[in-house]
């Protein structure tokens, strides 16, 4: 183990992200070498290949890039792709309005929702904030 590269030391990015989420922080990564932002967290920068991009709190602002309503027996729910102000996109759920009212281009704000099966990042529609 003494020969392991220290640039990749410590817990892996997914483990660190999950730990931060449990502490109430929605994190994304920013590369210390080239400045590129990325999500989900992975071990190297997708833009330049540098090791262990920094984990930083997201500013939480985003825009709905696309949206669908999943029709399910237990009720309809929203699944959206939100583009963060930092650039990366993620799959999420827009809350606070009916699933069918979510629109592409809508400005939304991140929030950590504590569900029974663990915390997750959702986005509030303007009407709900």
């Amino acid at each position: 183990m003494t020969n392991s590269d220290p640039r990749f030391g410590g817990p892996g990015p997914e483990a660190r992200w999950t730990e931060m989420l449990a502490d109430g922080i929605f994190a994304i990564q920013r590369c210390g070498a080239c400045g590129a932002a990325q999500f989900p967290p992975v071990a190297t920068c997708k833009a330049c290949g540098a090791a262990s991009p920094d984990m930083i709190p997201a500013d939480g602002r985003g825009t709905v890039y696309s949206t669908t309503t999943v029709r399910a027996r237990e009720g309809d729910h929203d699944v959206s792709i939100v583009e963060l102000s930092e650039g990366p996109r993620l799959m999420t759920c827009v809350t606070g309005i009916a699933p069918g009212d979510v629109r592409i281009g809508m400005a939304v704000t991140a929030r950590i929702e504590r569900a029974a099966d663990g915390p997750r990042v959702v986005f509030d529609a303007p009407e709900a904030t």
Partner: peptide
């Protein structure tokens, strides 16, 4: 793990998001 919490129907919701866009 970054998709599962949102309970999209795989694979149709992915194509639905593309169609909506």
């Amino acid at each position: 793990p970054f998709e599962a919490p949102y309970k999209a129907r795989y694979p149709i919701s992915g194509y639905a998001l593309a169609a909506a866009r």
